[in-house]
């Protein structure tokens, strides 16, 4: 399970970083989403990976660490709000600047 978890994180992070370095806002937003997804999974994994152990004391012989789960929940909420905000901002910038390049102007496009 650890190996699968690690590979998933690696794939998510590398695709996230790759997309983040693209010049179009849409792929940047996708990259940010993947990256924050990877980060959330990482945070979750820091409470150690266990099966069959609820995060409630006394319900089973072994219990999972509840703190990373609470942290992940907070991080998800914040990340979700941020993604929504950056999508709206990207749309606003695309309308106002008339292109979707992250710099607001496309170096390869002929200026009008």
């Amino acid at each position: 399970m650890e190996l699968l978890f690690a590979i998933t994180l690696g794939v998510l992070t590398s695709t996230g970083v790759y997309l983040l370095l693209r010049a179009r806002t849409f792929s940047v937003v996708l990259g940010l989403t993947l990256l924050s997804h990877a980060v959330n999974l990482f945070l979750f994994g820091m409470g150690r990976l266990k099966t069959d152990s609820p995060a409630v004391i006394g319900k089973a012989l072994e219990h999972a660490d509840p703190l990373p789960q609470a942290l992940v929940l907070t991080a998800i909420v914040i990340g979700f709000a941020m993604t929504a905000f950056v999508v709206v901002l990207a749309l606003k910038a695309a309308v106002e600047l008339r292109n979707d390049h992250v710099d607001g102007e496309d170096p390869n496009e002929d200026r009008p």
Partner: peptide, 9 residues
């Protein structure tokens, strides 16, 4: 808008 995009990302 342009400065904001960089700053936010």
């Amino acid at each position: 808008s342009r400065a904001g995009l960089h700053y936010v990302i």
